[in-house]
Protein backbone atom coordinates (compact mmCIF):
# COMPACT_ATOMS: atom_id res chain seq x y z
CA UNK A 1 0.00 0.00 0.00
CA UNK A 2 2.81 2.37 0.97
CA UNK A 3 4.76 1.35 -2.14
CA UNK A 4 1.78 2.04 -4.44
CA UNK A 5 1.22 5.42 -2.74
CA UNK A 6 4.89 6.28 -3.11
CA UNK A 7 4.80 5.36 -6.86
CA UNK A 8 1.71 7.56 -7.39
CA UNK A 9 3.51 10.40 -5.64
CA UNK A 10 6.52 9.94 -7.91
CA UNK A 11 4.31 9.95 -11.06
CA UNK A 12 2.46 13.04 -9.83
CA UNK A 13 5.73 14.80 -9.06
CA UNK A 14 7.01 13.85 -12.51
CA UNK A 15 3.89 15.26 -14.14
CA UNK A 16 4.15 18.52 -12.18
CA UNK A 17 7.84 18.89 -13.07
CA UNK A 18 7.02 18.07 -16.71
CA UNK A 19 4.23 20.64 -16.90
CA UNK A 20 6.37 23.26 -15.15
CA UNK A 21 9.26 22.47 -17.51
CA UNK A 22 7.06 22.79 -20.61
CA UNK A 23 5.56 26.01 -19.23
CA UNK A 24 9.04 27.42 -18.66
CA UNK A 25 10.19 26.44 -22.18
CA UNK A 26 7.06 28.02 -23.67
CA UNK A 27 7.54 31.17 -21.56
CA UNK A 28 11.25 31.43 -22.40
CA UNK A 29 10.55 31.07 -26.14
CA UNK A 30 8.00 33.89 -25.98
CA UNK A 31 4.54 34.29 -27.43
CA UNK A 32 3.15 35.33 -30.79
CA UNK A 33 0.25 37.75 -30.34
CA UNK A 34 -2.25 38.65 -33.02
CA UNK A 35 -5.05 41.09 -32.26
CA UNK A 36 -7.47 42.40 -34.86
CA UNK A 37 -10.27 44.74 -33.89
CA UNK A 38 -12.84 45.82 -36.43
CA UNK A 39 -13.92 49.35 -35.50
CA UNK A 40 -17.26 49.20 -37.25
CA UNK A 41 -20.28 48.88 -34.94
CA UNK A 42 -20.65 45.23 -34.08
CA UNK A 43 -17.30 44.53 -35.66
CA UNK A 44 -15.41 41.39 -34.76
CA UNK A 45 -12.46 41.14 -32.42
CA UNK A 46 -9.83 38.44 -32.78
CA UNK A 47 -7.23 37.72 -30.14
CA UNK A 48 -4.72 34.95 -30.70
CA UNK A 49 -1.82 34.10 -28.41
CA UNK A 50 0.38 31.21 -29.50
CA UNK A 51 3.56 30.15 -27.69
CA UNK A 52 6.45 30.59 -30.13
CA UNK A 53 7.64 27.07 -29.38
CA UNK A 54 4.36 25.73 -30.81
CA UNK A 55 5.04 27.53 -34.11
CA UNK A 56 8.59 26.19 -34.28
CA UNK A 57 7.42 22.65 -33.54
CA UNK A 58 4.41 23.03 -35.83
CA UNK A 59 6.64 23.95 -38.77
CA UNK A 60 8.78 20.88 -38.15
CA UNK A 61 5.67 18.70 -38.17
CA UNK A 62 4.22 20.40 -41.26
CA UNK A 63 4.16 18.12 -44.35
CA UNK A 64 7.49 18.64 -46.14
CA UNK A 65 5.92 18.96 -49.60
CA UNK A 66 3.54 21.71 -48.53
CA UNK A 67 6.30 23.54 -46.67
CA UNK A 68 8.61 23.27 -49.71
CA UNK A 69 5.95 24.77 -51.93
CA UNK A 70 5.16 27.55 -49.47
CA UNK A 71 8.79 28.52 -48.91
CA UNK A 72 10.00 28.30 -52.53
CA UNK A 73 8.99 31.87 -53.35
CA UNK A 74 10.46 33.25 -50.13
CA UNK A 75 13.77 31.44 -50.57
CA UNK A 76 15.74 34.32 -52.20
CA UNK A 77 14.85 36.56 -49.24
CA UNK A 78 15.49 34.05 -46.46
CA UNK A 79 19.19 34.96 -45.92
CA UNK A 80 18.26 38.66 -45.63
CA UNK A 81 15.41 37.90 -43.22
CA UNK A 82 17.66 35.64 -41.13
CA UNK A 83 20.43 38.28 -41.00
CA UNK A 84 17.90 40.96 -40.06
CA UNK A 85 16.46 38.68 -37.35
CA UNK A 86 19.90 38.02 -35.89
CA UNK A 87 20.81 41.73 -35.87
CA UNK A 88 17.44 42.81 -34.50
CA UNK A 89 17.96 40.41 -31.59
CA UNK A 90 21.09 42.39 -30.67
CA UNK A 91 19.45 45.83 -31.11
CA UNK A 92 18.15 47.82 -28.17
CA UNK A 93 14.41 48.47 -28.04
CA UNK A 94 13.47 51.10 -30.61
CA UNK A 95 10.83 52.20 -33.08
CA UNK A 96 12.16 51.45 -36.56
CA UNK A 97 9.32 52.76 -38.69
CA UNK A 98 6.45 55.13 -37.95
CA UNK A 99 4.05 56.34 -40.62
CA UNK A 100 1.25 58.68 -39.70
CA UNK A 101 -1.49 60.33 -41.73
CA UNK A 102 -5.01 61.46 -40.85
CA UNK A 103 -6.48 58.02 -41.50
CA UNK A 104 -3.79 55.60 -40.45
CA UNK A 105 -0.90 55.07 -38.06
CA UNK A 106 1.67 52.34 -38.60
CA UNK A 107 4.47 51.43 -36.26
CA UNK A 108 7.18 48.77 -36.40
CA UNK A 109 9.21 48.54 -33.23
CA UNK A 110 11.19 46.23 -31.02
CA UNK A 111 10.00 45.92 -27.45
CA UNK A 112 11.37 43.49 -24.89
CA UNK A 113 12.74 41.01 -27.40
CA UNK A 114 9.68 41.09 -29.66
CA UNK A 115 9.09 42.76 -32.99
CA UNK A 116 5.82 44.64 -32.65
CA UNK A 117 3.75 45.78 -35.64
CA UNK A 118 0.78 48.05 -34.98
CA UNK A 119 -1.67 49.44 -37.50
CA UNK A 120 -4.42 51.77 -36.37
CA UNK A 121 -6.70 52.87 -39.19
CA UNK A 122 -10.19 54.22 -39.51
CA UNK A 123 -11.56 50.71 -40.05
CA UNK A 124 -9.51 48.50 -37.81
CA UNK A 125 -6.76 48.13 -35.29
CA UNK A 126 -4.19 45.39 -35.84
CA UNK A 127 -1.47 44.34 -33.42
CA UNK A 128 1.08 41.66 -34.21
CA UNK A 129 4.04 40.80 -32.05
CA UNK A 130 6.46 37.91 -32.15
CA UNK A 131 9.79 37.11 -30.51
CA UNK A 132 12.69 38.26 -32.70
CA UNK A 133 14.48 35.01 -31.83
CA UNK A 134 11.74 33.16 -33.66
CA UNK A 135 12.81 34.57 -37.03
CA UNK A 136 16.13 32.72 -37.52
CA UNK A 137 14.65 29.39 -36.40
CA UNK A 138 11.72 29.71 -38.83
CA UNK A 139 14.10 30.70 -41.63
CA UNK A 140 16.34 27.70 -40.93
CA UNK A 141 13.31 25.38 -41.03
CA UNK A 142 12.18 26.91 -44.34
CA UNK A 143 15.70 26.71 -45.79
CA UNK A 144 15.97 23.05 -44.88
CA UNK A 145 12.64 22.38 -46.54
CA UNK A 146 13.71 23.72 -49.96
CA UNK A 147 16.63 22.42 -51.98
CA UNK A 148 19.17 25.13 -52.92
CA UNK A 149 18.80 26.55 -56.44
Amino acid sequence: MTGRFSRAKTILLGLVVGVLGLTFIAYAAGTVWVQVQDKKPGGHRILLAVPAVVITLGLKLFPAASLREASAEARPWLPAIEAAGNELAKCPDARFVEIRDPTEWVSIAKRGGSLVIDVDSVDERVHLSFPVRLVPSIVRTLEMSTPPN
Binding site: A83, A84, V97, R100, D101
Partner: peptide
Protein backbone atom coordinates in the same frame (compact mmCIF):
# COMPACT_ATOMS: atom_id res chain seq x y z
CA UNK B 1 1.78 62.33 -43.95
CA UNK B 2 4.79 61.91 -41.73
CA UNK B 3 7.32 59.10 -41.96
CA UNK B 4 10.10 58.25 -39.51
CA UNK B 5 12.59 55.48 -40.17
CA UNK B 6 15.37 54.57 -37.74
CA UNK B 7 17.77 51.84 -38.85
CA UNK B 8 20.72 50.53 -36.86
CA UNK B 9 23.78 50.71 -39.11
CA UNK B 10 24.97 47.30 -37.93
CA UNK B 11 21.74 45.86 -39.27
CA UNK B 12 22.35 47.51 -42.63
CA UNK B 13 25.90 46.21 -42.81
CA UNK B 14 24.82 42.64 -42.12
CA UNK B 15 21.65 42.56 -44.22
CA UNK B 16 22.93 44.27 -47.39
CA UNK B 17 25.30 41.50 -48.50
CA UNK B 18 22.52 38.93 -48.16
Amino acid sequence: ESVNVNVPLDLAEKVLPT
